[in-house]
Amino acid sequence: MLDFMDNVQNAFYEASHWNIDNSYGALNATARALLDFQTPRGLKLQISSLSAPNFATSYTLGNVGVVDGSVSYLYSSLPLRREFKSSELDLHHAIRGYRHFQELRRPDEDWWWEVWHSGKRIDRRDTLLYGRIFLPQSTLEALYLRRLSPTRQLKISAVSDSSLNNGGTILALLQNDVGKYSTEYMYSTDSALMGVRGLYNFGMDPRVELTAPVTAQEIAEPVHGRFSAGAELYYGLLNKSGGISTGLRFTTLPNHTGFPYTMTLTLNPLMGNLSSTYAVKAGSNLALCSRFDFNFYSYESELQLGCELWRRRRDTDLEWAVKKLRADWKRPTVSPDDDVSGVLKARVDQDWRIGVLWEGRIKELLFTLGASLDLKRREQIFRGIGIELQYSS
């Protein structure tokens, strides 16, 4: 389940009209959500609050090995209106699942962001500030996020820890997204790493308005999917080493009448790694995913299978029925996903290592219960088990 602060940051992206899926880094987001989920270990408690539309706080306490915790604060110059109360938030905002990619959105015009008063321009660029300190390690992490224009944003993250080289590291990322394509430029103080990556979407350009008349064939045959291609290149100036990768993705769009699905293929030629994924929304409550990795140099391969099953409330649940009637009174329609109460995730690989996760809500608490197993280790099948509880107001 997403951390409270991660959920708030996603709300900032949504409110500032930034598409987090239109980047090369999110090429395999669907497969990662279904296969790379983390199973908790021990007990972890988190209490959070969005005390104002611009300010959020969060406190965590855990007991993995030793008692530890963290304190974090977040400020957003852009008011965030999404519901964050743990008893009322949409679970799809807090739980990573199968990602339905939407149609590309036309970027805002620059003049849309201008605010004038008495002949003077008074608008400011939206900014997000985030800080977190881990105790008792005294590790500090920080994030500075600024929307420079409707198609550009700057993201600077930093970590201060005595165990790291030079006592910490800073990562700067300049992102550009015009809809049709996106580019990212990166610099990290760790090894003086520099990188660039980009993603190109084939098909219609959302920046181009349709002025010509639309033919009957174009109306009868709308675009049901999107094909994307991207690559990244990075090089470390201090350690004189670099890397390169490229990838392809095809995903169905909301107007697709069949089962939604997403396919990706990525290649790292220097390391010889080839990875292919296939994820499908097999029903309104079920999603399946597979990933096959192969190395050209060592001939080693790995296969992973995963699934997620959403649980919905029963119509006989009186509490849900009352909330639904209230929602019906406030708005004419109710999303078909408003009645979900949790999700069961599972994955297994060729070595019979299994991960199981159950995420959902009980009254006003969000919970994550998970376990990792290794069926080949008969003397100790359970590798880890834990539970996380979240409460936000």
Rank of each mutant, 00 (worst) to 15 (best):
V343S: 02
Y297S: 11
A287G: 09
G355F: 04
R314I: 06
L373E: 05
A282I: 05
D338C: 12
E364C: 12
S275V: 10
T277G: 01
P336W: 05
L265T: 01
L365I: 15
Q304D: 05
P269R: 03
R353F: 02
V356N: 02
F292R: 06
V334F: 05
L373K: 02
G360M: 07
Q304T: 07
V356K: 00
T277C: 07
S284G: 13
L305H: 02
D338H: 15
G370P: 02
C289H: 00
V356S: 02
V322K: 12
T316I: 10
F367K: 01
D293C: 03
T266E: 07
D315W: 10
S301T: 14
F294V: 05
L344H: 02
D339K: 12
C307M: 12
L286R: 01
L309R: 01
E302T: 09
V356C: 07
R353E: 13
P269N: 07
I362N: 12
T266W: 01
T264M: 00
C307E: 07
G355V: 01
V280D: 00
K363G: 06
K345V: 00
S275Y: 03
A279F: 01
L303K: 04
D339G: 14
N295S: 04
D293E: 13
P332F: 09
R311I: 03
K324D: 10
S290H: 07
G342C: 02
L369S: 12
T368R: 11
S284E: 11
L365A: 13
G283K: 05
L305V: 05
W352F: 14
C289Q: 04
A371M: 14
